[in-house]
């Protein structure tokens, strides 16, 4: 049994709680226990960083302090939470002045920044492993033609050796292939989706997300797979953002695991762009005995 500290983050409690459910279901299947941080709080995402860097660091430090107490490595599925927490942990560990500042703000909690922060691609690859992933497949996902979309925050973290190639990450591609998905190569793996400008400047999100979706369609893929809740939501909202284009279903990586293992996605009804065609395209692996 493997155990990890788990920081779901605000998106996985509200707009993308079905991502949380899907991830937990898949992790439980592989015997990975996700121990949710007790009384975790928001990392402040980009907003707190924009307003006040010290605040951004201290907000992340609070969750780091909770995780350090548990003694496990920390997994954060949301790319913004992952980037903020990982950046803060390094800064707290390396810079005495930052450590003093956050601990003063946090008290009575305290932290020293010595914690491993992982994203879920790393967890799948390092803790479960590609062979077990391939062995667990009960449904043939070859009819699903997908592109892997990593988004901008996952690999572009300054001052930290990235978990994957910065410009051409492969981790999710490898996982998807192991699950039997037909992975289509494309050039937009880490292009920005418009990020948090959806409310303040929806046209930008429409333009950037629209460009991504058009590229998906051109590539011949029928679906996008991602791990970032903000990317998923922006791409899923495309028809509301005013772009007149054919929308494409956008799945979270654990949802592909659900398809491969259980043949069904638990949070299917929560997708704005229907995923029915994807679910109906698959069938049990021939001659597979479980």
């Amino acid at each position: 049994m493997i155990a990890l500290s788990y920081y779901p983050g605000c998106s996985l409690r509200s707009s993308s709680d079905f991502y949380d459910i899907s991830l937990k279901k898949v992790m439980a299947y592989y015997g990975v226990a996700l121990k949710e941080l007790d009384d975790w709080s928001c990392c402040g995402a980009l907003a707190a960083l924009m307003v006040n860097e010290g605040l951004s660091l201290a907000l992340s430090a609070r969750n780091i302090a909770l995780a350090e107490g548990s003694g496990f490595h920390l997994v954060a599925p949301c790319s913004a939470c992952y980037a903020r927490t990982k950046t803060a942990a390094r800064k707290i560990a390396e810079d005495k002045e930052t450590r003093r500042m956050v601990n003063d703000a946090l008290s009575p909690l305290s932290c020293n920044g010595n914690i491993e922060v992982k994203n879920i691609i790393e967890v799948f690859l390092e803790y479960i492993g590609i062979e077990r992933i391939a062995d667990s497949v009960s449904y043939d996902l070859a009819p699903i033609h997908a592109v892997a979309y990593y988004g901008c925050l996952l690999t572009r973290i300054m001052g930290i050796s990235p978990s994957d190639d910065i410009e051409d990450p492969m981790g999710m591609d490898i996982i998807l292939k192991a699950l039997g998905v037909t992975v289509i190569p494309w050039q937009y793996k880490t292009e920005c989706c418009g990020a948090s400008s959806t409310i303040t400047n929806g046209d930008v999100t429409a333009k950037l997300s629209g460009r991504l979706i058009k590229a998906v369609v051109r590539s011949g893929a029928q679906t996008i797979v991602t791990t970032c809740p903000l990317c998923q939501l922006n791409l899923d909202l495309i028809t509301y953002l005013g772009e007149d284009i054919q929308p494409v279903p956008v799945l979270f990586l654990p949802e592909i695991f659900e398809l491969a293992i259980f043949g069904k996605i638990s949070g299917g009804a929560r997708h704005i762009v229907s995923i029915r065609d994807i679910e109906q395209a698959i069938a049990p692996v021939k001659g597979h005995v479980r």
């Binding site: 605000c10 709080s41 402040g44 995402a45 907003a47 707190a48 907000l59 409310i199």
Partner: peptide
Amino acid sequence: FDTLMVESIARHGHM
């Protein structure tokens, strides 16, 4: 908008 988000965190601890 960013300031409102920080205020939301101040109020709830979550966004």
